[in-house]
Amino acid sequence: MTATTRRAGDVILKLDNISLSFGGVKALTDISFDVREHEVRAIIGPNGAGKSSMLNVINGVYHPQAGTITFRGEVRRDMNPHRAAASGIARTFQNIALFRGMSVLDNIMTGRNLKMKAHFLEQAIWFGRARREELEHRAKVEEIIDFLEIQHIRKTPVGRLPYGLQKRVELARALAAEPSMLLLDEPMAGMNVEEKQDMCRFVLDVNEQYGTTIVLIEHDMGVVMDISDRVVVLDYGKKIGDGTPDEVRSNKTVIDAYLGVAH
C-alpha cells in the first residue's frame, strides 16, 4: 500500500521556533513544523543535523532555550519526559537504550509501568490489585511479543541478544505503553536488508492497526520515501525542507545539502 492512501488527521503536535544549544554548539535554530494525527512523519538530514535533538525536545529530554511545543492543544515552553510519556508519547533511541540487566519480558513490562497503579505495600504482599495487574499486563505484553515475533527470546537477558533483535525489543518496550505517538530514532540503522524489511513492516502495521502517529528518523532514503507521508529536512540545525517525499526530493536546497554544496 502507498503512503497517500493512509488517513491523516488534524495537527496534534506543533513545534514553533524551537532553538536549542549546548554551550556554544547550536543544535537547533528556529525550527517550526507540525505532525498530524495518524501520519508517518520523517525527519532526515546529514549527521549532526539535529535530528535526535529534535526528538529529545519533543519528549522532554532536552529543554530548548526558545520556542513552544503544542501537543494536543496544550502550549508549553518545554516538555518533561514524564509528562510526555503520560500524554502518550513513546520513544526508541538511536543507540539502543534497553535495560541491560533485565530480561526481554521485564524490559517490555517496564514499558507499561505508568499504567500500573498498585501501591508498593500491595506489591510487597503480592495480593489483590498488585497480583491482578501483574497478570493483566503480562497478557498485554504477550500480545506485543506475538506481534513483533519475539516469543522465543521472552526470558533472555537483553544483553545477550544480537543487535537487530535488541532494536526490536526496544520497539516492543515503546509499544507496550500503547502510545498515540511513537518517536523512532533510526530504528533500522545497522540492519541488513531482511531485518529492515521486517522493521518497516512492523512500523507500518503499528501505524495502520493502532493508528499510532509515527515520527521517524532514518538515513535510508529508500525507506523514508517509501513509508512516510511527510518529511522534514534538517541541516546544521536549520530546517531546509518540509513536504511530501516527492516535494522534498525535488527541493533544490535539499539536493544541495545532500550533495554537499558549500553553504
Binding site: H82, A85, F93, F99, R100, G101, M102, M109, T110, N113
Partner: peptide
C-alpha cells in the same frame, strides 16, 4: 522494575514515564 530501569539506563526510564 522501575528500580532496575533507573539502574540500567536512567534516561530511557524517564522517557517511559518513570519518575
Amino acid at each position: 522494575r522501575a528500580w532496575m530501569a533507573v539502574r540500567d539506563m536512567d534516561v530511557a526510564a524517564s522517557v517511559i514515564g518513570i519518575r
